[in-house]
């Protein structure tokens, strides 16, 4: 076994894991507070990449500006969705939220595919992050290293805010008992709107990170989101650290599977999901409610 190939796949696994972690984190936070299984998450991730593309092609604003602006644009789009549609579903079964967001995902992806085809648009790696480092045992492209480090930082910052700050304690409490938190004088409906905006913005941010790696493609989120849902199920809904750890770990597992048994690399996550559901239905880090 060539160490070169092993480390190469480890890196690809970490990259994929970074996206799994960022996306499942947002899904988990949204599900916790809104009781909505946000199937539009993949489409919103794709929108982040497209916003980066538009910012560059229409206004000349480059990657770094996109990293700041695209999450805001996509987050505001999410807020509009929440205010006009999702908020009508909170008292209904999870299934309705899933169906609505699934429909939204199909519409959004359909519109983008209609306009831009499905072959993908190029987005260049920012000049500061081209090239890479020769580590001796492998070549590490600078942009990929950046993606892993940056998304890990974003995930840990999110974890810190939710688990260690006053704002996070409101979020955790409202996830458990929104009625009581509201009766303490906290504007829970506004918090729900902002949380959805944040989770969706996180998907948009992941989309910007992905643009130079995977190209900007209307269907880039459609394939990814299925795996991300499996990651959420394995990690357990509602656990922040669980989402992060599971996301990165499963990316790496997938990468190693490509080295040792490539035929299974597309299914290994779903096999793990089935096993976890058999043994621990609430997921590895989930709390039984």
């Amino acid at each position: 076994m060539a160490t070169q190939a092993l480390f190469g796949q480890l890196l690809i696994g970490l990259i994929n894991g970074a996206f799994y972690a960022m996306l499942s984190l947002g899904l988990s936070v949204i599900f916790g507070l809104l009781n909505i299984i946000n199937f539009a998450h993949g489409a919103q991730y794709m929108m982040g990449a497209f916003v980066a593309y538009f910012l560059l092609s229409l206004t000349g604003l480059g990657y770094w500006w996109s990293l700041l602006l695209a999450p805001i644009v996509v987050g505001l789009f999410g807020i509009a969705l929440e205010r006009t549609m999702l908020k009508r579903l909170y008292h209904l079964d999870h299934l309705y939220g899933l169906l609505l967001t699934f429909g939204l995902a199909l519409i959004i992806q359909g519109v983008f595919r209609n306009e831009f085809g499905s072959s993908g648009l190029p987005y260049a790696i920012p000049a500061q992050l081209t090239g890479g480092y020769n580590l001796g045992f492998m070549f590490l492209p600078a942009y990929r290293a950046w993606v892993v480090v940056f998304s890990l930082g974003v995930c840990l910052a999110t974890w810190w805010v939710i688990e260690r700050t006053k704002l996070g304690s409101y979020l955790r409490a409202a996830t458990e008992n929104p009625t009581l938190v509201r009766a303490f004088g906290i504007n829970v409906p506004r918090m729900i709107t902002l949380t959805y905006g944040f989770g969706v913005g996180l998907a948009g941010l992941a989309g910007v990170l992905a643009a130079p790696i995977y190209q900007v493609n209307p269907l880039m989120g459609a394939d990814l989101i299925i795996v991300v849902f499996a990651v959420v199920v394995i990690g357990g809904m509602g656990s922040i650290m669980g989402s992060i750890v599971t996301g990165f770990a499963l990316g790496v597992v997938e990468g190693f599977t490509k080295v040792f048994y490539p035929e299974a690399s597309n299914t290994v996550i779903f096999v793990i999901m089935a096993l976890v559901l058999l043994v621990r239905p609430t997921g590895l880090f989930g709390r039984a409610s």
């Binding site: 304690s169 409490a173 009766a183 303490f184 004088g185 906290i186 829970v188």
Partner: peptide
Amino acid sequence: SNAIARLGIAFCPEERGIFASLNVQENLLL
């Protein structure tokens, strides 16, 4: 209810409503 609470009425529910994901201090300061 959030506006009513802001007027200066506070409620302690029968089931107590202690949050499991918050420690005692966080519950107290919530």
